[in-house]
Design a protein around this nucleic acid. Sequence first.
DNA 1: ACCGTTAACGTAAACGTTTACGTTAACGAT
DNA 2: ATCGTTAACGTAAACGTTTACGTTAACGGT
Lengths: 385, 385
Amino acid sequence: MSRVKCPKCQNVERILKAGIIRNKQRYFCKECVYHFIIKKVQKDNHILSDKPASQVSLQDIASVAGVSITTVSRALKNRPDISIQTREYIKELAKSLNYQPNILAQSLVNKSTHTLGVIIPSLETTVFSTMLGGIQEVASKAGYRVIICNSNENHETEIANIQGLMNHLIDGLLICHSIQTSSYEHIRIHLGKRIPIVQFYRVAIGLPISQILAEDEVGAEKVTAYLIKKGCRRIALLLGPKNLSITQKRFNGYKISLEKHGINLDIKLLAHVDFLQESVEKALEDWLKINPKIDGIISISDKSAAQIIRLLKKKSIKIPEEINVFGFGNEFTGQIVEPELSTFDTKTRIIGEEAARLIIEQIISGNQEVTSKLIPGEIILRGSA
Amino acid sequence: MSRVKCPKCQNVERILKAGIIRNKQRYFCKECVYHFIIKKVQKDNHILSDKPASQVSLQDIASVAGVSITTVSRALKNRPDISIQTREYIKELAKSLNYQPNILAQSLVNKSTHTLGVIIPSLETTVFSTMLGGIQEVASKAGYRVIICNSNENHETEIANIQGLMNHLIDGLLICHSIQTSSYEHIRIHLGKRIPIVQFYRVAIGLPISQILAEDEVGAEKVTAYLIKKGCRRIALLLGPKNLSITQKRFNGYKISLEKHGINLDIKLLAHVDFLQESVEKALEDWLKINPKIDGIISISDKSAAQIIRLLKKKSIKIPEEINVFGFGNEFTGQIVEPELSTFDTKTRIIGEEAARLIIEQIISGNQEVTSKLIPGEIILRGSA
DNA sequence: ACCGTTAACGTAAACGTTTACGTTAACGAT
DNA sequence: ATCGTTAACGTAAACGTTTACGTTAACGGT
């Protein structure tokens, strides 16, 4: 009935229809017992007809040079088993064709991407962008790219980001936890695998993971001691959410220092904020109502401290005469506010640098020994305390 | 002489040595004319003997389920041509084995990485980290990852970063040029290819590339006009390096406004700085020596403006009575300095958001039509002018 | 009995590399 | 002539996916 010809036995007579598959008629040849579908005619893609935009591959170079892909790879990678003439010829050819290796394919074979993943809670907070700067610099110098994921202080986002990065995109993970992160199951499941993890600044306490930390406890202790020495007895402490490691450590340092100097801890002097301007203002209002009056404030960040100073001045409260204000982090803002802010410099950039250094070392050595490093900070005295 | 047996014909007699290759003895069987090397005995890697750390692949699932890789892929991707029972079984199996797809392999096949590349001159400058925040947010919501490369205001680094990212790592490139970038050959060679490029904030003038811009010209014009209306006649203008687009545009706006109000342009009132504190201080010193005296300063950024205010106050120069100071960018610092800083809000975050939105649209639609978008800014009046 | 249809699978090519292993031809020594 | 050696290449598998295409068995209609 039809002019269909069997591609195997060339028979035209005993061909039967045999169903429709993917919108194409299928046939069955009774002669040679063979099912088949009529192929479309091939397009004429002889020469580089329609690939203006696509990158040239090893195959393209090999075709032009008249050698195999292996030989091209050998030439470009300076491997042995190739003659000098061939090597130079191929190298020049590759350059003239503007060959660029496909990093995806390389990574797939080499099982290494030369990329670090960084999970950061926010990009618009000075401490974090400063740490990122340190990470970037060290990573770049060591030949590593950086994928930055912003968790936006959100637990779910943090989990999703980590999962994505861990799916073979990175050689190592640097993580600074979000405010909301209180369980660490999503980290634990990746421990002991191929990809090393380093926590920095905000860390999970109690997990066997390498950490790079600021001197939160020591710093808070030193600052508290300094204020006590200056005569303060009612020192208010502005802290972040309770689950954060920096919150716990700074509180510890504060408490230790009070104990050493025989001052009783007053819970009313503690406040937990979420880094937003409103919550800082609220905490300050509450403190100012307390009796006996507060005579010192240790802030969670320089930004909040600067904000506190502005608010106190609006209320005509003298700094440092009535209230001493101390910041944490040594941000630029502290040099702008009046009086200039005394602060504990946590050496934020160095934390980033060290974190990158540590993870790169772990990647290269394959040694994932758990280490914990404290970056020494420094009290910087200016006008506010 | 030896007990070597030919793997083909099992002959033991007519075996000859045939060179050493990669430190292994090679043999030649005269019987069947065959070269061979004695293979090492295979290791017993029956069960998952030594893969505690390696991720499970489609192949692993397929082996356990007793089906082919294709079937597993179909199940996990909800493709047709699979029975519901099989699909559900495989899905559960995958979950219990904690299967995670290898994004590298997916990207290689799909020729798409769902990743945006961003080249930024610095991470520690507020405008940039704010724009990054905007980019990140829009990208995340659209399901795109972000690779951030810090050019560190360096031309060579910018070139290297772009080249790296373009080697199949990203689906689209967002770029904000470094100070040092004056030639744009490294951008031009990537135009018209598969990967769209969008410039933002600092752009190359004259290249056919889509751009998202701040209202630099209009903003400078408005600010200048405002100061003139307030009575200023000697308005100093702090600019960045001459090759930057924002420098040229802000200067244009300034000039236009002066002309409109019949004020002559005085070159001595212009200063080009490199964003470092020292150069700002130097520019200010020079200005203060000029006669007739300056009565207004338009700064390149809020940070520099805040710095200028502090310096002026140290010299007991009254703001805004003697000198009006205007910033650019609406950074947090402007609310801390006293008097609070009047500024032109360039809506930095929106610039980032729009840049991300535009490039994602170009990626999805495949339409690389060149568009240029100006993000409307807004004058914010506070105490300094 | 014969034919047409379809659900549900499998095979293999493709993406662009890297690399273990095979092969060839030329050369020198016996 | 026969054998050992080596430089310089090629072949093919592997990395983990996706997908075009082929195949099988079962079923229903005549």
